[in-house]
Simulated scan of single mutants.
Amino acid sequence: MVYLSFEWIGWMVGVTAVFWATPQPFKLMSLAIATAVFLIIYDPISCGILVLLTLITYGAARLPFTESKRLILGLTPIFILLFGYKALSKFSGNDLLTGTIIPLGLSYYTLRCAHYLIETYKGNSKQIPLLDLVAYLFFLPTIFIGPIHRQPEFSRDLRRHRWNSELFSEGIERIIYGYFKIAVLGNFLISRIFAESSDRISEDGSILAGYLLMVQIGLNLYFQFSGFSDIAIGFARLLGFRVLENFNWPYFKSNISAFWNSWHISLTSWCRDYVYGPVVAITRSPSLGSIATLIAVALWHEISIRYLLWGLYHGLGIILWQKGSQYWRRYPIENPTLRFLIKVSSIALTTHYVWFGFYLVREIQF
């Protein structure tokens, strides 16, 4: 199942039609059932795991223990499943296993379960009825690609839920926008036209060839991933829900910290809240917090040496920028032309730093 298939378009159209045709008291149930049917058809193991995690999450929040014990008992099986599957798929050495072992959407719904438990523990979110939790976790638009939307905002939309023609129209526009990014900008212009042009003007193995490949990887990754997110966000709006934005023009940011605040926002904000904050609170070191956060982002993608190095690469980049910005703030530049040139240069440097990291992840195979 891929977003560019007519099959997925059929699911979006069918689920949306059934959802709005269902009487209000049964809308949530119909959407959860549709998601369960989807998972049973395409990945029944994932459906079973999601059911299990839903029960664990719901039960852990209500155990007759202290808040900290409930949190530990809930989070432990969630992260064992997530990182156990990722480690098994990486180190199994079985090509078939490697290609199929990670259940559909596991990386996304485990973090939603953890988010709900942590927010309940912190007192920022009240315990919700089982049906509301099921609706939150069995939410088809974001089930296997994200964004990792937050439970309080989802519950707010539940309370206010009604037909909104403007939101519905926004959803259609956003879906078209996402498909344009993936099919036209990513697949056609970058993966085909740009790649063919690069092959003609550069020799294989040359520095220019490596540079053009790096640019191709960086641009295609953005168009594909942000396009997927646009489709998921648009699908959610067709159903009357607003979910968290996932990208905010990341390649136009002038420093690496701003980049990570605008790239895969739902994941980086999750890690900032639940990794960076606690690490800084314990160590009083923003630098350690940055390193830990980017390592968490990296290992969420894949448990491997290459992603560990990628996380360290970006963590060190943020630390260097933080240290440098403290110095630059002492010497403000008054000349507007010079400020503009520095701004443009900073954007170019940041973008190439990010692209080089993507290139290394692709080229390093360990």
Rank of each mutant, 00 (worst) to 15 (best):
A195T: 14
Y136M: 02
W260A: 02
T283W: 01
L106Y: 10
Q216E: 15
Y211G: 05
K343T: 05
Y136C: 05
S325I: 10
T98S: 10
F358N: 07
S30W: 06
W355R: 02
Y327F: 10
E153R: 13
I128C: 10
W163I: 08
L338G: 06
N164V: 04
Y359M: 12
Q326M: 14
L341D: 09
T54M: 03
S285L: 09
F83Y: 15
P250Y: 04
I282D: 01
G218L: 06
R339G: 11
R192A: 04
P23R: 15
E302Y: 09
A34C: 11
S304K: 05
M29L: 14
G10Q: 08
V243F: 12
M29N: 05
F144V: 02
Y222Q: 08
N246A: 12
I182R: 05
R112Q: 09
R159S: 05
T120F: 00
Q127F: 06
Y251R: 14
Y222I: 07
S304R: 05
L55E: 00
F180D: 06
M214F: 03
R162N: 12
Y3N: 01
G317M: 03
I33K: 11
L239H: 00
Q326P: 03
M1Q: 02
I40G: 07
F228T: 00
R242E: 06
F247Q: 13
R330Y: 09
D199H: 12
F228D: 02
V37F: 11
L106Q: 12
L267S: 01
V215Y: 04
E363S: 09
F6P: 11
Q322R: 14
F252E: 15
K181E: 10
Y58P: 03
I56W: 09
I56P: 06
R200D: 09
V15S: 11
S169P: 02
I101L: 15
M29E: 12
N220Y: 12
G74E: 04
L140N: 08
L117E: 04
W300H: 04
L111V: 00
G324N: 15
